[in-house]
Amino acid sequence: MSDARSDIFARIREALKVKAPKPHLKGDGAPGKTSTVAKPWLPDGGETAEDSLTILAEQLAKLKAVLIRVPDHASAAKAVAELSVSKNWKKVAYHGHDLLRPVAAALTCENWEADASFDKQRLEGCDAGITTCESIVAQLGSILVSSTSSGGRALSILPHVHVVIAETSQVVPDLGAALALVKARHGTDMPSMLSFITGPSRTGDIERILVLGAHGPKELFLILVG
């Protein structure tokens, strides 16, 4: 087989022999490469932890995600158990994590540690999936899950409801901080999937009218401890 890769690289190198001008920038200086540079022109993520929590609550409300703040993990387990009753969940799947096992234990409905014996057909039949997360981005109301912190790829997307249990210390001000944390934590050994979840699944494909729960969860609960 002739080498498409070499051909493409040869075309690129040939094309780039002529330089292109930089874009017409409007700011007072070129921002250059953006790594670790603060970005005071993006949406605000809060100066202090308290600011960030306020912004996070506002963003989640606009996204139609539900934020439940609780003082401790026991209260978190109680809150999830109450949800399961009020929402009439029959089957719940959860990520096998030390903080989540007590939550599952407090449930009165059928529950299953999904990543211990993964079965996609069984997961499809679950009403809710419970996971932890990597971090939470106040600026945008995004919850970062990963294939390691959230019981694989499907648990946070296939069940009709997604419940995330996290601690306030996991809230970071902005997306840049969340990405920096990912690099610091995982380095070159990234989870195979990292996903910023920003509100319940949605679509506007029919007449641009917002409908929640297109393919992913229709409801998203963030239980924030502390």
Binding site: Q59, S142, S192, M193, L194, I197, R202, G216
Partner: peptide, 15 residues
Amino acid sequence: QPMTCYNTLYSGPRK
């Protein structure tokens, strides 16, 4: 939107 609902990074197949 502030962010689209899912912005996902994939680094490879199942690890």
